[in-house]
Nucleic acid binder design. Structure first.
Lengths: 230, 230
DNA sequence: CGTAGGGTTGAGGTTAATCAAGTATGGTGG
DNA sequence: CCACCATACTTGATTAACCTCAACCCTACG
């Protein structure tokens, strides 16, 4: 059990630089939990007691509007941490989290982690870097919500996913969305209907083709030209 | 000169807990600069060399779209720091910054500051807290862009400003927007025309009255009910 | 075979961006 | 002191994006 936690920690950039003794301290304080499909990890406003490292499955981080609509801020995949930022805030979690599918998650107690920071400036700085990445991600999201239409945001997502799997984007490349379309719609700040139409339009224009969750790039050049800045 | 810098540092929550020697080190590495109206501090993508503490004036932090439209992410006022997050990233500044009016700014070199972090875990943690606040701010902005209409976002701003000056929001309270309306429009993710109409509508409905930059609360209850969550 | 969940499509309405023009104000130069 | 201009802001008409609601398709599955 503990060895699984330990092993998982080494896969995360946040912990990989830690010394043996720190890893041990964290490992013994952390626990591994399985969340069933649609089970909640925490709700917005809950007091922050821990942050998380995904081992398997998918965790969605989202906010609910007054009338029950949800906006997905982030989808955490295996080897990713989330809610690291929240442990330094005063208030509760700024968003809610729930398992999209059955997921294994390592729960790292806030206090244990913070006490490590006292003695390890390097860890603290790695943490700062980690949070800075979030910050950039957030500013990018704000920007795209403020300026780009749904179609462009979708293309941005497709291209970035393609970058993840291959190094660049070329015609004929093929990848799995890896995420329910309704979830992706919400992540892109829209609703399934509008998302679906945007996808249809890209297919009609022969920029890409879609078969279920599989996307094939047909016109990399045009796709890239849609999202390029200045 | 140095004494002004020192004094300004003590007013910022980020530095106020620092020891005498650290403050001295920062003070001697930092410089104070005056930026004229509309002068740029840095552009998006520029290599990050420093972060900033505003002494006087206003600095807007914004992103430009491909076709030249700008979206204001933040307006930094006296005693506030900005771009702290950027100094931990790998890439350049994620946004641009420019003086709205003639402004005095303390420039704190990235390297000097980071070297302090090595020896001072407390400072590092305060930094983490500071960035966590940004993170929350960002998630709130994303949420409101995704879900709320312009009018509601405007009311949210009015109420939060009112909270800044008074503790709560009551009929008859009066405050200065303290920011150009076009800038505020951009900050709210819209354009001056739409902003103006939203303000007009609130006046017509007798929720508030506006005289130039002066806003008077007329119906606090209704305003609050517009923004309350769940 | 019936139902549920994920996804798509269509019609219609609302919000907000665009385009165009107009008002108010303050400063500048004659 | 006034004409001129720039800037900030406002207003109106038009258009485009996208949300809502409703229906429908498809596949999996009990």
């Amino acid at each position: 059990m503990n060895s699984r936690i330990k092993q998982a920690m080494y896969t995360s950039p946040l912990f990989s630089g830690l010394g043996e003794s720190d890893i041990d301290k964290l490992t013994s304080a952390a626990s591994i939990r399985v969340y069933g499909k649609r089970e909640a990890l925490f709700m917005e406003g809950d007091p922050v007691e821990s942050f998380y490292l995904v081992v398997s499955g998918q965790i969605k981080v989202y906010k609910l509007s007054a009338d029950g609509k949800e906006h997905v801020l982030h989808l955490a995949l295996p080897n990713q941490t989330f809610a690291e930022g929240a442990i330094f805030g005063f208030a509760g979690y700024p968003a809610s989290a729930e398992a999209v599918e059955s997921s294994e998650v390592i729960v790292i107690p806030k206090e244990t982690f913070i006490s490590l920071l006292d003695d390890d400036p390097k860890l603290c700085q790695r943490m700062l870097k980690e949070i800075a990445i979030w910050l950039r991600r957030m500013t990018d999201i704000i920007f795209s919500l403020a300026f780009k239409d749904v179609e462009t945001r979708l293309v941005g997502y497709v291209v970035s996913q393609c970058h993840n799997e291959y190094q660049d984007v070329q015609n004929g490349m093929r990848f799995n969305l890896g995420i329910e379309k309704a979830l992706l719609a919400s992540y892109l700040g829209t609703i399934p209907e509008t998302f679906s139409r945007a996808l249809r339009k890209l297919q009609n224009n022969k920029l890409l083709s879609v078969d279920g969750p599989i996307v094939t790039i047909l016109d990399a050049e045009k796709l890239l030209s849609m999202i390029e800045k200045d």
